[in-house]
């Protein structure tokens, strides 16, 4: 029974991983691709690891460490990448497309 639940959780995680790939493919510019690609993977990866933990409860501590590590590193790396893209856009003008909805100041208001 737990095996069935575990495999279903893994399948849900796989759906998130697939939609990360789809978002990576369909999104229009670099920032939105980073958004779609590197974050749906975090939830998908966590769900896959939870499913595996349901199969083998004795593995769960190590799976927890892997999930925690991905939770720590994934936002940092995607932030670094987005920051690099933001810097590149200012420097070479049009290397990365970004349809900014106005400048930051006027959008956020006083």
């Amino acid at each position: 029974m737990t095996e069935l639940i575990g495999s279903i959780v893994i399948l849900i995680g796989a759906v998130f991983l697939f939609s990360a790939g789809l978002g990576m493919f369909r999104m229009p510019d670099a920032f939105t691709r980073i958004q779609a690609g590197t974050k749906a993977t975090t939830l998908g990866n966590t769900l896959v690891l939870i499913g595996i933990a349901l199969y083998f409860p004795s593995w769960s501590l190590k799976l927890l460490i892997i999930a925690y590590f991905v939770f720590m590193t994934n936002p940092i790396s995607s932030h670094a990448l987005a920051r690099a893209a933001y810097g590149l856009q200012g420097r070479c003008g049009g290397g990365v497309r970004l349809e900014t909805a106005g400048t930051p100041d006027e959008r956020s208001g006083p």
Binding site: A14, L17, T41, T42, N45, V48, A85, L88, G95
Partner: peptide
């Protein structure tokens, strides 16, 4: 089209690979 897109794709692929290795 740009290097950033490629690196973002690699980032996504590596996390997916972690899931695949665990599987």
């Amino acid at each position: 089209p740009t290097a950033v897109d490629r690196v973002a794709a690699i980032d996504m692929l590596t996390i997916t690979s972690i899931s695949l290795i665990a599987l």
